[in-house]
Amino acid sequence: MEKRITTPLTDEVVKSLRAGDKVLITGYIYTARDAAHKRMVEAIQRGEKPPIDLKGQIIYYVGPTPPKPGQVIGSAGPTTAIRMDKYVEPLLKLGLKGMIGKGYRSPQVKELLKKYKAVYFAAVGGVATLLQKHIKSSELIAYEDLGTEAIRRLYVEDFPVIVANDAFGGDVFEEGRKKYAKIDV
């Protein structure tokens, strides 16, 4: 069974999600990768506001390719999440509630998710065309000079993800390893 959620996320929604849950997201999410994260965190450290209000938001770790004629967006598959780990806490402090990427997170980020009541969703890599079909609009928000790594505001409908790390310390990667470690081959 899939859970349907809408953005912006509330603490109640985040608390209802558990590692392993299949989730369909509808609403606005933001894109940002390494370069945009670095700029946002540097701005925060200077006492400036980031270019987006992070309260209740989800950031998708993606650098979509330019759209072909008739497309809203080009290929939009997730990038490896652990590369953003060093930037997570300042964004969570400002109210970020969710992140979407590929792969596992560091133990430090998993602790921060518990501390700030946030969630990390995994999107399946290698299915960028499938994910692209759930993106209904794309608007450039900030850092246009970063090209595909600029911050964009996407409107998504039933965007498929899995809760990889929940706000209680649940970790789908660890739980999966434990489950299959018990199987004799």
Rank of each mutant, 00 (worst) to 15 (best):
E2D: 11
K3E: 00
T7E: 03
L9D: 02
T10I: 09
V13G: 01
V13I: 15
V14G: 02
G20L: 01
G20W: 00
V23G: 03
L24K: 12
L24R: 13
I25D: 13
T26A: 04
G27N: 10
Y28V: 14
Y28S: 13
Y30W: 12
T31Q: 06
T31P: 05
A32N: 13
H37E: 07
R39Q: 13
M40S: 08
Q45W: 01
R46M: 11
E48R: 06
P50C: 03
I52Y: 11
L54E: 00
G56F: 08
Q57H: 02
I58T: 04
I59N: 09
Y61A: 00
G63D: 11
T65P: 00
T65K: 07
P67K: 05
P67C: 06
K68L: 11
Q71Y: 09
I73V: 15
G74H: 08
G77N: 05
T79D: 05
T80P: 08
T80V: 10
A81M: 15
A81E: 05
D85F: 07
Y87Q: 03
V88T: 06
E89D: 13
P90Y: 12
P90R: 13
G95L: 12
G98E: 06
G103N: 15
G103R: 05
Y104K: 11
Q108V: 12
V109W: 04
V109Y: 07
E111M: 12
K114A: 11
Y116L: 07
K117E: 10
A118K: 04
V119D: 03
Y120I: 13
F121H: 11
A122F: 00
A122D: 04
V127N: 10
A128T: 07
A128F: 03
L130E: 13
Q132C: 05
K136S: 08
S138A: 15
S138G: 02
E139W: 05
E139D: 14
L140A: 10
I141R: 10
A142T: 08
A142S: 14
D145E: 15
T148E: 15
T148S: 13
A150P: 06
R152L: 03
E157L: 04
D158A: 14
D158P: 04
D158R: 14
P160I: 02
I162H: 04
I162R: 04
N165H: 15
D166G: 06
A167I: 00
A167P: 00
G170H: 01
V172A: 15
F173S: 01
E174D: 12
E174Y: 12
G176A: 12
K179M: 15
Y180V: 14
Y180G: 03
Y180D: 09
Y180R: 11
K182M: 08
K182G: 06
K182P: 00
D184N: 13
